[in-house]
Design a protein around this nucleic acid. Sequence first.
DNA 1: GTGCACTCATGCCCTAGAAGAATCAATCGT
DNA 2: ACGATTGATTCTTCTAGGGCATGAGTGCAC
Lengths: 322, 322
Amino acid sequence: MSIETRHLRCFLAVADTLHFGRAAEQLHLAQPAVSRTVRQLEREVGTELLTRSTRSVALTAAGEEYAARARAVLDQVGLAGEAARNIAEGRSGVLRLGVTGAATYGYLPDLARVAAAAIPDVRLHVETEMLTPQQEQALVEDRLDLGVLRSPVGSPDVDHVVLRPERLVVALPESHPLAAGGPDTVVDVADLADEDFVTYADRSGSVVLRAVLAACAEAGFVPRRPHQVTATATAVALVAAGRGVSLLPETASALTLSGVTFRPTTTGQQLDLALAWPAGRRRPVVTRLLEALHEAGLAPRVPQDRPGPRHTPTTTPQEASA
Amino acid sequence: MSIETRHLRCFLAVADTLHFGRAAEQLHLAQPAVSRTVRQLEREVGTELLTRSTRSVALTAAGEEYAARARAVLDQVGLAGEAARNIAEGRSGVLRLGVTGAATYGYLPDLARVAAAAIPDVRLHVETEMLTPQQEQALVEDRLDLGVLRSPVGSPDVDHVVLRPERLVVALPESHPLAAGGPDTVVDVADLADEDFVTYADRSGSVVLRAVLAACAEAGFVPRRPHQVTATATAVALVAAGRGVSLLPETASALTLSGVTFRPTTTGQQLDLALAWPAGRRRPVVTRLLEALHEAGLAPRVPQDRPGPRHTPTTTPQEASA
DNA sequence: GTGCACTCATGCCCTAGAAGAATCAATCGT
DNA sequence: ACGATTGATTCTTCTAGGGCATGAGTGCAC
């Protein structure tokens, strides 16, 4: 046999009242049951916790210590349940978030602010510079809870909601002739034909890269791409250094580096910033965040999670909270 | 019904193996029992902890959190038992110690050193300047575990062992004529007849005061006592300030203050420094300390605690460990 | 000092509920 | 499509936790 919380509750009742009968009453038990249960506990612990002398009861020094710890244990059991419920109902917990390059600067700060305000006890685990397909896979494999990515979303096991249509803007060195006009001066993509381009690297599936190449093709040229980067900040830094120009989603213009100016462009290419989650097993904390974002005007209304494919978690479950 | 450690162990086994059958095996139970117990736990906690899909099992986020906390709870239950056993076997715990005035300086430091060395996890709660009868009463009433006091011990409910016979020494201002000789020069008590004496106050039962008065009577005079103090250090300080002389137990001479010299005296009065504990309920930590003191040559051999009067703890039990 | 009242322990019995066995249902892989 | 695997369900069995009656020890009253 081993120690059950029943034993602890019983012992604590006696420790509080210093009276078996009174303790029994308090526990809605008969006195002999209390006697036996406490004795079992002592036997299990391996030492006397109470000094009984048919007329009175006192705690031994060991019993004092044990009582304090037993109380802590019962508290912890209660708190554990509360913590679990909080997580289950989205009031706390780790939210594993993936973010594409540009959205890190134009959307993540707002999201983080809303999350902190709406969910008292949320901890964000953010992975940035994740391409859309990477995020999709991570969502399906339960390595992410929520992705900030660009549609189109391919996987049927990932649900998403479009946040806003985005145009491509051009990042120009401040000294560039095309940056001469006011901030609203629209730059014709065709005028960039002779520029060096800073683009994302040819990793598989960058939605932005595809849009950039399409915009250039639309304007009738294939961009020269001497500089290829994997992080948005690097692209902007290279532009600031005068190494070329870069077509980026609007959100990237939040990343203001001295020496860089952003201008709207003529391209019809459109990028959709979106939030995505695993279909059918959207975490409550995600649902709560989506609602908060909606209320803050940072996301559209999002319906209940559809039952979805209930994909059996195959490999890695959620990582343990450290 | 409420949550028992049985539920936690069951759940943790499943959380570890992610397999009900395997968990059952590990727990020496049949699979259905595990199923039911985990379900009970979930019902009790109020939320799903596991995602089951007949082919596989995974923890929910709430389950991850709960598992971590449940593990902590079981650990704590184990540690609580260990802590209790340690206290019961005298390897740790609070030792409430009373010390008479002079012994604070001549014996307590040694005792504290030995205690720290012999008992890994002991905490001393020391009350100093306690007169012998005060200590006796505190021992009987379970407000002290061990007293450093002076025999004779009156109460039959207090056992004691004499540490050493002590002579009275005289504390003299450095400039005093009697302090002229070497440190071994014996001072005749009769020569102090015309001095101002610094003595303990006339509180009831100071063994030292009684011995001092007896020594003076022996030498044929009644001391003039313009200064009465309640703390040994104060007495020595007053002597240092040249306000008088003081007869003190040898142990007090460990309290070297500049301006004070100690000299042996001719008096036959004897004081016994002793260790005392409540008869019949000597705490294990005390027993252990007594043994250690014996091994260090700081106390005589002390026998097992006699069964004693097994005095029912009437009023205050041991104070809770803070 | 004797008796009474109080309180914790013990023995016996009973039943609630925990565990086992057999079976079902769902899902994945071949 | 079928078999293998695995968790859930049902029914039965039996353990052990709880109640009742009682005993034993102790302090208190008179």
